[in-house]
Nucleic acid binder design. Sequence first.
DNA 1: CGGTATCCAGGCCGATACTG
DNA 2: CAGTATCGGCCTGGATACCG
Lengths: 128, 128
Amino acid sequence: MNRDDLIPIPFVFEEPCPIRDVLDRIGDQWSLLILEVLAHGTMRFSQLERAIGDISKQMLSKTLRRLEEDGFVRRTLYPQVPPRVEYQLTDLGRSFLVPMKNLIAWANANHGAIRDARGDYRARGADR
Amino acid sequence: MNRDDLIPIPFVFEEPCPIRDVLDRIGDQWSLLILEVLAHGTMRFSQLERAIGDISKQMLSKTLRRLEEDGFVRRTLYPQVPPRVEYQLTDLGRSFLVPMKNLIAWANANHGAIRDARGDYRARGADR
DNA sequence: CGGTATCCAGGCCGATACTG
DNA sequence: CAGTATCGGCCTGGATACCG
């Protein structure tokens, strides 16, 4: 066995790995978008639906429940007829958006470079 | 929470949205893990395979090609028999890991809170 | 050694219909 | 209003076999 094989095992191998656990949630189609919208304040189900525009009720419901389950969002039911349900970020949800903002800033700053890289990749592929 | 903590929505609706574009890559099963491992230095295909342990050749190959396509990783082929291929982070890949480390730190710090929230959620669910 | 081709299972997600 | 139930397409990712 070569020395090169003795790679120090990074924390991403922890069981369960925290960052992978987190990415499994916000890496999906809608979670980040919903957290972003909720950063503006408390909103009702139908408000979220309209604010996002192209999300189905099912995915909005499922995603909100997962975010609630993980403690990012608090759901408040007012037992009226018709029912009124409000969603708001928890402290955990708000604190998550702090490091996330850095990543978003990076993405905005480097999106052009990524798109250029894709163009280069395809151009090189055309040579083959 | 004061007004300045509020994050403006607009950029998540950009077409195409940079952060969603980025998350589509590193939000998958293996990308972040591979970037982490490559942060330790240049590695060959089979080294990556052994370092990660439970990744299939297919997924390692696919993921590396996507990372290469997006400019996070550089692939170097040495035309020998048997072939030798080395992978290393590009400047873009390394710069990505900077904001990513903040998010990882958050995940590590708050993983307990998330797991607690899941426990609470299930406990409340048992009442229903 | 460093991949690709093929098959397959499971989950994500949209569309639609229905409900308290 | 705020969901749930059901169906179905698509994509991800695992296992395996094959190849230069």
